[in-house]
Nucleic acid binder design. Structure first.
Lengths: 160, 160
DNA sequence: TAGTATCGACAACCACGTTGTCTAAACCGT
DNA sequence: ACGGTTTAGACAACGTGGTTGTCGATACTA
């Protein structure tokens, strides 16, 4: 018996990443479906992560890049699109003439607040389907197993 | 009490997608770290999904696109790169002069076999950390909650 | 004060996705 | 058997997100 810890009844190992991704994707898709009906039809998943990285207090483009785990140039491009969509604005940083502070507009703040509410509802949907204990097991298991700390969100570049 | 199903002890809803993604990402990263030490250093995550879609029997580019949930043009481009890397080859389809059959080379088959073995080991690592029952709960919970059937893998385009 | 580090901007490039157009071949109903 | 429709794959143009490299201006520091 070469693999004593693997039960024959268990699914093959390659299903695990697929299931995790499918769960992630379905949550994000549902988020954006709801967001679209609440005045935010053109927000892409990346934009949500970027706004989260900007935060309510604002941040510089370089800082956003650091938080997202991407280069400052990549962060700058995303901020450009967020700016064009009216979700952020750039203002001069009074404490550093090189830097510009990226701040969420009221529209950006609204998007973030709505996202938080929608995620709360989506988690509640999972609880309704699985029971509170199973959802907690999923969460705590993942917390145990993922390397803590890091959180790079350069999904397109990382994956492809 | 507006949210009777939500316990105050529960984590905020936005953590769930982040944890799922972190789990997915850590598995994929570990897969490619192992793959790199076994003769496949330049395989990107997308390539693995594409080779999986091609399968051991081969498939046309259009069929690969359908299985992956992307356009035939996008599938064709990915196959180009796989071809350049020596993981697949295109041969004329004897039964359809329009079509070319994309087949895995021995190198491609090897990559797929190694991936399956590595995923098995990674799942065994999770079992060692969490116990077999918790891993099964994670898997069955996700199976319950994700919409079945569909599986689009157009990650970069979808996310960004 | 001089040297170094960082900011943001710009350019060039790559990867992955899209839509649209085109030719050739297969399929199907008359 | 033929003619219209569908499908395969190639090619082009483009959008978006990532990269590196360069640059001038500003801040930090020895």
């Amino acid at each position: 018996m070469p693999f004593p810890s693997v039960d024959d009844q268990d699914p093959p190992g390659w299903q695990l990443p697929l299931l995790l991704f499918a769960g992630f994707r379905s949550l994000i898709d549902e988020l954006h479906a709801h967001l679209a009906t609440r005045g935010h039809p053109d927000v892409r998943p990346v934009y949500g992560f970027a706004m989260q990285a900007i935060g309510v207090h604002g941040a510089s483009a370089s800082e956003v890049g650091r938080r997202l785990g991407v280069s400052k140039q990549a962060a700058g491009k995303t901020i450009d699109r967020l700016d064009a969509l009216g979700y952020v604005e750039r203002v001069d940083d009074p404490r550093d003439a090189r830097s510009k502070l990226v701040r969420l507009t009221p529209r950006g703040v609204d998007c973030l607040q709505q996202s938080a509410e929608i995620f709360e509802r989506l988690r509640a949907d999972w609880v309704a389907q699985l029971g509170a204990d199973r959802v907690r097991v999923v969460e705590s298991s993942l917390r145990t197993v993922v390397p803590s700390g890091i959180f790079p969100v350069d999904v397109p570049g990382w994956f492809g």
